[in-house]
């Protein structure tokens, strides 16, 4: 085996591996919303978060604008507090915006839908660390069924 052929084959091997890594990094994996310098955090309290998990997407009209950074329980009100990492390029949501926990499909994963609110002079733009007050909890199937039966009973 000549030295040149050996080098060529090893070079080809390494190049193939790099191509594989690039495919995995760019096409397969979600490099996500990168570090904190490119995103800002918003907080929101919910009654019930259902099946929401860290890293669930935050969508505006179906477009992913951020992800759930963490979920904690407020020690006083016993309400879940959700921290959202929002991409800095979407930095102009008004404080009248509302959040809802939605489900994609019947069995799909849960995500947060952000509904931007109206803007006028008295309304400020949400900044890092602000709370979104208007939240709608996740729909829990059991509660829904219970409500339905209760309504039927009243009729």
């Amino acid at each position: 085996m000549t030295s040149r052929k050996l080098e060529l084959l090893v070079g080809f091997f390494v190049a193939l591996a790099i191509a594989a890594l690039l495919l995995l990094a760019l096409k397969v994996a979600n490099t996500g919303v990168a570090g904190s310098d490119q995103s800002y955090q918003l907080l929101a309290k919910f009654e019930n978060i259902g099946g929401l998990k860290a890293r669930s997407p935050v969508k505006v009209g179906g477009v992913v604008v951020g992800r759930v950074a963490s979920i904690q329980l407020d020690p006083e009100s016993f309400q879940p507090v959700v921290t959202l990492d929002i991409n800095s390029s979407y930095s102009n949501f008004p404080e009248t915006s509302s959040l809802a926990i939605l489900t994609s499909g019947l069995l799909g994963e849960q995500y947060i839908g952000l509904q931007p609110g109206f803007v006028d002079e008295n309304v400020e733009i949400l900044k890092n660390g602000d709370y979104i007050e208007d939240t709608k909890s996740a729909i829990v199937l059991e509660e829904l069924i219970g409500q339905f039966l209760f309504n039927r009973g009243n009729q």
């Binding site: 995995l24 096409k27 397969v28 996500g32």
Partner: peptide
């Protein structure tokens, strides 16, 4: 196929 993959695969965590 690709987008669901991207939504669920994390570079750090998985790759």
């Amino acid at each position: 196929y690709w987008s669901a993959m991207q939504a669920n695969v994390d570079f750090q965590q998985d790759v």
